[in-house]
Structures are given as C-alpha cells and as structure tokens.
Design a protein around this nucleic acid. Structure first.
Lengths: 186, 186
DNA sequence: ACCTGAACACCGTTCAAGT
DNA sequence: ACCTGAACACCGTTCAAGT
C-alpha cells in the first residue's frame, strides 16, 4: 500500500522539478520538497542528490527528441534528416532553457568527458551520422565528437532573441562544414 | 594612508579569486574572505556581488588575449590571423577552465543577450571579421553573432581530453563554414 | 574612509525518530 | 518500507559597531 504513495511522491517531485526547470528557474531541493509537501528525506530517498533529480527529469524530456531520429531517417534523405533533427535539438535547448545551465553544471561536477544526460543525444547523433556516412553525404572523417562541439551553440540561444533565425544560420554554417568534402554531396 | 590598505586588499582578493578560478574550482566568497584574512564586508565593499568579482577577474585575464588580435592582423593574412586568434581563444577557454561555468552562470542570471564579460571578446571578433570582409576571405553575410554561436564549443573543451586536437578539428570545420562563398578565397 | 565579524535567510545533505 | 522534520555545515549578503 505504501508503495503507491511512494510512487505518487516520486511522480509529484519529478513534475514540480520539470515545471521549475522548464520555466528556466534554478532548482532548489528544499523549495521543491516544500512545494510538494514532502520531507527532505523523502526527496533524497528517491534521488540521491540534486544532479540525479535534474538528470531524471532531463532524461524523460529528451527521450522523445532522441526517438524521433529514426523516423526522420526513414522519411527523408539522410542529410535532410540530420539537419531537421539538429533543428529540433535547438528548439529543445531553447524551450527547456533551465536545462542548459543545470546540465552544464552537472557535467563539470563529475569532471566526466561528457554530460551523463548527453548520452541519449549521442545515441541519436551516432545514428544520424552513420546514416549520412553510408549515404556519403558528409565528410568521411566526421565524428560524433566533432558534431558535439559544433552544435554547442544551440545551448546558448536565448528565448528572448530571435532564436529561430539564429539557429537556422548556425545550422546552415555547420552543415557546410560537415558536408564539404563528402563523397556524394546532394 | 588607509587608501593603500584598501588597494592592497583589493589586489589580494583578485589574486585569490584568480587562483581559485584558474584551478577550475567553484568560487566561494566566504572562503576567499577567509583565505585573504579579510571581513566579508570588505569583500562586498570592493565588489558588490559575486558576479562582479568573477567579472573583474575575467576582464583582466581576457584583456591580453583580446589585445593580441591587432598584432595578428598586422603580421598575417586576415584569414590566418582569424584562425590563430580562435585557436588562442580555445586555449584560454581550456586553461582558465573555471571561467566557463562562472561566466555562463553570470549571463543567465542577468538574462542579458550576451555575457557582460564577453564584450571584449566581441570587440576582438569584430575587428577580425571586418578585416576578413575587407579582404573578401569570408562569406559576405557572416556576422559576429554567427561566429559567437559557432565557437561556443571551445568552452566545452576539457583539459582532461586531448583538447588541442579536438580544438583544431573544430576550428577547421568552422573555418570551412565561414569561408565557403567568400569573394576572394585564399 | 575603511574594516570587522556577528547575523539573517537561504542552501544541500544526513539521520534519528516515527508509522 | 517509507516518511518526517530537526540538525549540520555550508552559502551569499547585510549591517551595526569599531578604528
């Protein structure tokens, strides 16, 4: 019986955290605990520390985006799918503004070479890059690491500015770099 | 007479903050106050808040880098100077690791469209871009905003990885995007 | 003028005590 | 099992009191 209570709490914590992060607010565990009327300890029972909570929320949100890569590849030529997916990533970065900071923080803390939350994104990118290599539509030596560095700018886009135009220009320029020297340019 | 004491304190605070930030540590005002044996109030007399201190330290450090742009343009063809300066920026981003987080934080807090500490960098970039436009060595429509987004990746380089190779690849790809469609490519 | 350090309102995290 | 809330060690920031 208690089990369902626990499950319920977990849900409500994730929900509240998502709302805060989506609004672009910095997250505070104490505040969230108070908001969902739960002891601090309960929060820590479900998520061992702050980063874990942020990661859990992020992971859920990013999943849809990541999953959409396959569909795009099925429906469009490889380079078009690539470009479209990056465009969706940019939108994600802007509309889930709070994640940009939070994730950046999380990565530095661990000193890991990669955001732990970036792993699913890397999965999608790998799929897109491989498809484009197979089609010969990007330079043969292009790696996931290259692309990760080139798209870092999307996390810097601001909802306040005209981010759609800025993102489009950024992606145009990036695509040129990635496609120049391709065996079978389109 | 007190004046020199105050000046001295300011110096020592900046020094301590620089050391912490360069080491890549998160900065704590309380810790710095203790480290330089100064009351908290003294710190706040010199710098109204945390961001101001970080900004002051950063501004000093970035100045040398920014100033080097003119010299590079005088000594090399415009596109070579551009590329070399970006390479120095990457080195700065890696070796002053602590700044990456700190600056990112500072920018979100104010909600400004641009890092306040990025202003000098923008100055250098403007100079480099204009020189290349004059020489016709970059695409005519390339703006500072474009370049800022494209180079965002340098702040993501890690001293732990082989950052020199990664930076070189990133800059290669970026330069292709920027130079493709130039009126007088070299 | 400039400095000190106690004080305030917040954190993240832990843990004994309850059911 | 799961939850609560007091407690701890930290923050950033303010401000009365000292020189």
């Amino acid at each position: 019986m208690q089990r369902s209570d626990a499950q319920r709490n977990r849900e409500r914590i994730l929900e509240a955290a998502l709302e805060e992060l989506t609004a672009g607010n910095a997250i505070s565990l104490s505040a969230i605990a108070k908001r969902v009327s739960v002891g601090q300890g309960t929060l820590y029972r479900h998520f061992p520390d702050k980063d874990s909570l942020v990661l859990a929320v992020y992971h859920r949100e990013v999943q849809l985006l990541v999953d959409s890569a396959s569909g795009l590849l099925a429906a469009h030529p490889a380079p078009i799918a690539f470009r479209e997916w990056l465009s969706r990533l940019a939108k994600f970065a802007v509309t889930k503004a709070g994640f940009a900071d939070a994730m950046q923080q999380a990565s530095r803390a661990t000193g890991a070479p990669l955001h732990p939350g970036y792993v699913p994104v890397v999965g999608a990118l790998t799929e897109l890059i491989e498809a484009n290599h197979a089609a010969g539509t990007i330079r043969p030596d292009l790696t996931v690491d290259d692309v990760l560095l080139m798209i870092a700018g999307v996390w810097q886009l601001s909802p306040l500015a005209d981010w759609q135009a800025q993102a489009a220009r950024l992606l145009d320029l990036i695509m040129i770099g990635m496609t120049t020297g391709a065996p079978h340019p389109e």
